[in-house]
Simulated scan of single mutants.
Amino acid sequence: MPAAAAARGPLLLLRRQPAPGLAVIRRSFSSPYSGMRCASAAAGGRERRSSPAYDGLLLDAGGTLLQLARPVAKTYASLGRRYGVSKREENIMEGFKRAFSASWPKTLRYQGDGRPFWRIVVAEATDCTDNDYFEEVYQYYAHGDAWRLPAGAYKMLRDLKNAGVKLAVVSNFDTRLRKLLKDLHVSDMFDAIVVSSEVGHEKPAPEIFKIALDQIGVEASKAVHVGDDETADKAGANAIGLECWLWGEDVKTFSEIQDRILTRLPQ
């Protein structure tokens, strides 16, 4: 074979034989958008949007979001020993409840720091009017260590916030509340913190609920309030068309609250 032909031999063979896997390559390009359609459909399934059942959650503080780290009567008794408090814990608790159920002559029970009201409660519960004792009790409850969050509360707040639900505290409380929420690392979770001693209205007054709803920008019909008092929380909220779940009755865990709020509704 001439040298020129020998040199062209491999090229001729390549021309005569189809490229390996060419049919497979052709098939893969026969429908250039088929794979994209499949990927798009899968992505579309993942990205389908749905909305929570409620746009806003209002939460009571004391007795709902904030729970005592230990029983109030035990704290009053232990702190009162060096001040001469000798009442039994059950009797302290009776006096405590008696003070709370008594009518309050002023518009607000919690004015400013709440000391006038709490001074009466401590004296009624313990029969001790020593000012140093009262201040020790008062300061004890001004720190987060005296309180705790119920199981699942922090997770619920975090997950609802991530889901776009607006969150607010609506509480009959004194000026210590903001610090307590900060101590317990939840104050930044809330879009609004509405405290009766600051806004001049106490539950069940409709104004305090309206203030909270205005601050989070949610209508009453699209929000729910959770609290532990039949009159202050449920009757007050219902009066302005705001649904209310009673803590310990309608809902018993914060995971249950989360599940009910995040129940998906088709858009």
Rank of each mutant, 00 (worst) to 15 (best):
G56K: 13
C38D: 06
A43C: 07
G63C: 05
G63S: 07
S40T: 06
G35S: 05
G63A: 04
D55V: 09
Y54G: 01
L59E: 01
G35W: 02
G63W: 03
L59H: 00
A42T: 04
P52T: 11
R49P: 01
C38Q: 06
S51A: 09
L59W: 06
L58S: 13
D60S: 15
G56A: 00
R48P: 01
L59Y: 05
G45V: 07
S51P: 02
E47S: 06
M36D: 03
L59C: 14
G44L: 09
D60N: 14
L59T: 02
R48N: 06
L65E: 14
E47W: 04
Y54A: 06
L65N: 14
P52I: 06
S40V: 10
D55C: 15
A42F: 13
R46W: 11
M36T: 05
L58V: 08
T64R: 15
G62Y: 15
D60H: 03
G35Y: 03
D55L: 15
S40C: 07
R46C: 09
L58D: 04
D60C: 04
G62T: 13
G62N: 15
A61Q: 03
R48V: 09
G63Q: 01
P52E: 12
G35P: 02
S51E: 12
A61D: 03
G44S: 11
L65K: 06
L65T: 15
L58R: 15
M36G: 03
A43Y: 03
S50K: 10
G63H: 11
A43K: 02
Y54C: 15
R49W: 09
S40P: 01
L65I: 09
R49V: 10
Y54T: 00
L59Q: 13
A61F: 00
A43P: 00
S40A: 10
D60G: 10
L58W: 11
M36A: 12
R49Y: 04
E47N: 12
G45K: 12
A53H: 12
P52F: 07
G44P: 01
R37P: 00
L57R: 14
G63L: 02
A43V: 06
G35K: 04
G45S: 08
Y54M: 14
D60P: 08
A43M: 12
S50V: 14
R46G: 08
E47F: 07
G63K: 08
A61V: 09
S40Y: 05
R49T: 09
T64L: 14
A43W: 04
T64I: 12
A43D: 02
